[in-house]
């Protein structure tokens, strides 16, 4: 392997942060504080995670691995919730949606033999699945919120005609699921042509034959489609009812 990032080169690469800082100051973007905080957080978080993963991989304990996956899922749900202001139980809904989408996708990958149930494979893959599911759910929440606002009159008219809540919301729910899934579908179309995605780049970096590396990327594409579609559909079907009160009226 010819991986050569050492502390000195990392320190020199930190000059790149100065580029962003300089632009922020020069153009008066007011982002300098955020950049500094962002960089410090990234460095501290990644160092902690690096040491933590090193420990978990070495111990190779089933419960510790599951606890780490649970921690990832909970954090993903916590972040997805923030995209759904005004949606009650958004944390519970996100947790269930991410848990099921990650669980099902991981289960298929393990059972098919694509990945092994060892921490060094399970944890990074769980992170990729949960974070994509999180982004999809966040987009779906945002879409639900904006559509229930923009199409309020149409929903009211459907209700006035004696429509059930799902019939009154179905067009909105479908559009929100579509919004959640579309980035994954779009990136599936351009994968390899526009960018070499993380999984594949990482393997190539580590010296793996590109033809083997793409097989992993193909697996990632499949798993992200499953994760984002399951995450979006579960979250939308559980969340739409929150836009109505107990009298089946639009809030």
């Amino acid at each position: 392997m010819n991986l050569a990032v050492n502390n000195t080169s990392l320190f020199l690469a930190a000059m790149l942060v100065l580029v962003a800082l300089a632009i922020s100051l020069w153009q008066k973007l007011g982002l300098d504080k955020d950049i500094v905080i962002g960089v410090i957080r990234a460095v501290v978080q990644l160092f902690l995670v690096g040491y933590l993963l090193k420990y978990i991989f070495r111990v190779n304990n089933l419960w510790l691995t599951l606890a780490m996956i649970a921690f990832i899922i909970f954090n993903a749900a916590w972040n997805a919730r923030k995209r759904g202001p005004g949606i009650d139980h958004a944390l519970g809904i996100s947790l269930l949606a991410i848990l099921i989408s990650t669980g099902v996708t991981l289960g298929v990958l393990v059972l098919s033999g694509a990945i092994k149930f060892i921490p060094s494979q399970m944890i990074p893959i769980s992170g990729m699945i949960a974070s994509n599911s999180m982004v999809a759910i966040g987009l779906a929440y945002r879409s639900l919120n904006s559509q229930f606002h923009d199409h309020r009159q149409g929903v009211l008219e459907r209700l006035a005609l004696g429509s059930g809540l799902l019939d009154a919301s179905i067009a909105i729910v479908r559009e929100a699921i579509r919004t959640g899934m579309s980035p994954t579908i779009d990136s599936a179309k351009t994968v390899g042509l526009v960018s070499l995605p993380g999984m594949m780049s990482g393997l190539i970096f580590a010296g793996v034959d590109p033809v083997r590396a793409i097989k992993y990327q193909i697996m990632v594409t499949f798993m992200l489609l499953s994760a984002t579609s399951l995450g979006s559909i579960i979250a939308c079907y559980l969340a739409y009812r929150n836009f109505y009160n107990e009298h089946k009226q639009l809030k």
């Binding site: 005609l161 004696g162 059930g164």
Partner: peptide
């Protein structure tokens, strides 16, 4: 049930 009611009072 509000839904059944709205089918009667439209």
């Amino acid at each position: 049930d509000p839904i059944m009611y709205r089918r009667q009072v439209s």
